[in-house]
């Protein structure tokens, strides 16, 4: 049994301008102990998917359909108080911006210890010991002193280490890392990626890496799920996806600069669509170089094309034939 199975998840935002279908019919699964990449442009529904699993989608967002099976149990059927016990304890989330995701008015020790106290009903001293241990795991220097400091006293990289420690505090089974390196310097990015890789291996944790960086995906992930405009375009092993990509993934890969090649970067024409009134049929068709009339009319189903590779494209098979 997979640790996490998301089936036909729909999370919509009921804004004054209209209903934004941020996550629309997303199906994916995450195998226990694996690192899975959740890839897509900004606004493709990656973060909302993670927030939906924890059921912390901010207003006016609402999960309106689907199933989220965690260890076989549907999280969407849990009562709020039951669900609270999953958050931080069984499923954790690391945010994109460490500066804004730490409360500026509380010491590191007090905001992290609170999490231990709320879940395990321990005394403050014991909770602080656990916090120090977690800070040591993420290699934060001098954790005994750090717990008495405030977030603004740390650098961005150190803050992200603290955020990782917060997510790991209660040894969760599943960790979502939502673009954890986007707001960091390049050198710090490499350190944080290395840290996450080590932690995943040492703790045997299941990691869902949310990113738009194909380089990070290639380095860390065994499986990849590609989202576009709230829909799953494809999912499969890293080899399958790099070898036989969906037209969208193909375009995405061509837009990644490489050091070993001198070629022009090809950007994807157009913009990510307005999700209040998304394109008909395949949501990628207005920007797809292979699009035909069928793509506009009918939404392609997510099909198993072998080797656990799932593709949502009318023309993929035909294009593969032509390519090989």
């Amino acid at each position: 049994m997979n640790l996490l199975e998301i089936e036909n998840l729909k999370t919509y935002f009921f804004t004054e301008a209209g209903v934004v279908k941020a996550v629309d019919d997303v199906t994916l699964s995450v195998e226990r102990g694996c690192t899975v990449g959740l890839v897509g442009e900004s606004g493709s529904g990656k973060s909302v998917t993670a927030q939906s699993v924890l059921r912390i989608v901010p207003r006016p967002g609402k999960i309106i359909g689907g199933k989220i099976l965690f260890n076989g149990e549907d999280l969407l059927l849990k009562k709020e108080e039951e669900m609270r016990k999953y958050r931080g304890k069984k499923i954790s989330l690391i945010f994109q911006d460490p500066t804004s995701s730490l409360n500026p008015l509380f010491t590191i020790g007090s905001q992290l210890a609170d999490i231990v106290i709320e879940h395990e009903k321990v005394k403050k001293e014991e909770a602080l010991d656990r916090v120090i241990k977690a800070l040591r795991i993420v290699k934060l220097p001098d954790p005994e002193h750090a717990i008495y400091q405030y977030p603004h006293q740390f650098s961005g990289g150190m803050k992200q280490r603290i955020c990782i420690a917060r997510a790991l505090l209660l040894n969760p089974e599943l960790l979502f890392a939502d673009e954890p390196t986007t707001n960091l310097d390049v050198t710090i990015q490499a350190q944080i990626i290395a840290l996450l890789k080590d932690l995943q291996r040492e703790l045997g944790m299941t990691l869902v890496m949310i990113t738009h960086d194909m380089g990070i995906v290639a380095e860390m992930c065994k499986y990849v799920v590609v989202l576009y405009a709230g829909n799953v375009m494809e999912s499969g092993s890293i080899e399958e996806i790099f070898e036989r990509p969906h037209p969208y993934t193909e375009a995405l890969l061509k837009a990644v600069p490489r050091l070993d090649e001198t070629r022009k970067l090809i950007s994807i024409p157009g913009n990510i669509p307005n999700l209040i009134d998304p394109p008909s049929g395949c949501r990628f068709h207005p920007r797809c170089q292979y699009a035909i009339d069928l793509c506009k009319e009918k939404k392609p189903p997510l099909e198993d094309v072998g080797n656990s590779h799932f593709i949502s494209c009318h023309r993929w098979r035909e294009l593969q034939g032509g390519r090989s």
């Binding site: 924890l54 931080g88 995701s101």
Partner: peptide
């Protein structure tokens, strides 16, 4: 703010 979402994501009541 993110720190509110983060507090919720950590299971703070």
């Amino acid at each position: 703010q993110d720190y509110i979402l983060a507090a919720r994501a950590s299971g703070i009541p």
